[in-house]
Write a protein that binds this DNA or RNA. Structure first.
Lengths: 336, 336
DNA sequence: GTGAAAGCGCTAACAC
DNA sequence: GTGTTAGCGCTTTCAC
């Protein structure tokens, strides 16, 4: 049988209230002797307070939920790590949920998290589905959306990277390097980030008075397998291009592999730029020029803001645009 | 104010017991009419059962904890995903903890998880520290260790890949390919897997009557940055070798980059083999020959066994050795 | 079929 | 300084 606060109070010959106070560090008014006695007994017995029971009365579980598409996607571990680090630092615990961008799963997780009485939720939504936002709006639970904002969601905060400017800067750089027939290998264009990056891409071309090529937008998935195959096809078709701006690093990595497999020199024949700056971006040869997205910071900051919301209980509508940064490496040739 | 079971029972003019039954699908003996009435009202009110309160009485939180060194290490996301998938499938929720291989953090997390009354814990321990095992032995909470077993821990299960055989097979293959001056670029040798892989490496050499070279064991970290620098140094020193067996894929990837940066041809001049088969192993050129470790399956199976332990309440001492598989790709030359 | 009531382990007034 | 007590929201036994 596991020891409870009652057992401790009995053994220490005090009330449960007193034990509770020393367990929770609210023991200013408890005499040193009893405090020490209680502490010793707790130690001896190996008493572990039942936080479930505390949560019942405090209405705080000190737990937050994180819903992301897939922790196995290299973009998310760092994000998750950022969230967890801040959470842990503040004594919170993190529940991890993989939605696979599946609306049903998102919904289920949202429900489970609320049933488990999490204090707040960090959410990378698959789309801006209104049903989800509605449910979320109704419940009073603090929610922060990360990486992609979700339209119908009111009175909540969003942390996203500045995709448009990131893409703009990247493509601008490619143009400066002398690439001017640049494809955009995009992830699913229905997602906000993909759209924003596309906008940035277009704006960069426009600003340089360069007409986008026909078929410059190639839509697919955020996967190296997809881009590998797709780029092979592009090569075979004898398409005329000299640069590829990729929706993310995975796409860029797959493209790089396909190009190298056909002995196309990167960066001399074709320039390549990715997005995210995942760890692997610097582990390939040539290293990937890419737009660094502060994933870890996004997670960390999301958690910071979430805890602030939890503490203040007031919700503020807010869009936090985090800066991206172009990391120039070897997959683009240097500017003459 | 959030609706409680009482509110529902009042609105439906039934007892809380009845509501509880329909909420939890134990409503065989409830008439269809009342069942429907209750369901409708729950719907209308948007009632969300408080699972914290249920946990108080059922002594089940339907939550498990996962302690790993670092979710940002490419090895762990798949493992975590495996755990989460099975957990979710069985209606469990996953708490994620990053220990950074830090004993103190491991301890803290272990404590937190127990306070939160998780039903079980999956644990990749940094070392086989006895203090941890002792604490764990004392508490009755089911624990499964993954990837590395921890010695002092009694009556618990372990899921590990067969590192020794995996390494043996890999090095055997290298020898068959004609490499016979093979280095072992290891992660921290204090960790069990590193030791076991080293044993396999040695056994393979021995079986082929090949004397290990001097300084064949190079110890470092499971990081591409480390191996990149380390291999650069090896190259500069003009060391005589023709193959590198790496403690994991990150090490191999860093080595590959260093070799290629010095225009050393992989696989023709130097053969390279990794361990794990992370996603990136096939995204480089040449693709990495590696020992596939079934990370996802490890996580999934760990979760399966954990839930079995939770349900049976009996603990069985058990070591599950999962098979590794050599994946031959382009970083080793083909057998003549 | 349904309800009454006890109690899970804890906290937070408030009383002393 | 310390104790009493009333719940937190739910499940479950047992009675009806």
């Amino acid at each position: 049988m596991k020891a409870t606060i009652k057992d401790i109070s009995r053994l220490a010959e005090v009330s449960t209230a007193t034990v509770s106070k020393v367990v929770n560090g609210k023991a200013e008014k408890i005499s040193l002797t009893t405090k020490e006695r209680i502490t010793r007994i707790i130690e001896e017995v190996g008493y572990i307070p039942n936080r479930i029971a505390s949560s019942m009365v405090t209405k705080r579980t000190k737990t937050i939920g994180l819903i992301i598409p897939d922790i196995a996607n290299p973009f998310f571990p760092e994000l998750a790590r950022g969230v967890e680090d801040l959470a842990n630092k503040e004594g919170y615990t993190l529940i991890l949920c993989n939605s696979d961008n599946d609306l049903k799963k998102e919904d289920d997780y949202l429900g489970m998290l609320q049933e488990k009485m999490v204090d707040g939720i960090i959410f990378t939504a698959s789309s801006n589905h209104s049903a989800v936002s509605l449910a979320l709006n109704k419940s009073k639970i603090p929610v922060i959306t990360v990486e992609r904002n979700i339209d119908g969601l009111m009175s909540q905060q969003t942390i996203v990277a500045n995709n448009e400017i990131g893409a703009f800067t990247a493509v601008k750089h490619m143009l400066k390097c002398g690439y001017n027939k640049i494809l955009y290998l995009s992830g699913p264009i229905k997602s906000k980030p993909a759209q924003e990056r596309y906008s940035g891409y277009l704006r960069a071309l426009k600003e340089s008075n360069i007409e986008p090529m026909k078929f410059h937008l190639i839509e697919g998935y955020y996967s190296g397998d997809w881009s590998f195959i797709r780029v092979q096809k592009i090569i075979k078709e004898g398409f005329d291009y000299d640069g590829i701006f990729c929706g993310n690093d995975l796409i860029a990595l797959g493209a790089l592999k396909a190009l190298q497999a056909s002995d196309i020199d990167v960066p001399n024949q074709v320039g390549l730029v990715g997005f995210d700056d995942i760890y692997m971006a610097q582990m390939v040869n040539p290293e990937l020029t890419t737009v660094r997205q502060p994933n870890y910071e996004m997670g960390y900051q999301a958690a910071e803001n979430l805890l602030a919301m939890i503490d203040n209980e007031k919700t503020m509508l807010n869009l936090n645009l985090l800066k991206t940064r172009l990391i120039v490496r070897g997959s683009t040739r240097s500017i003459n």
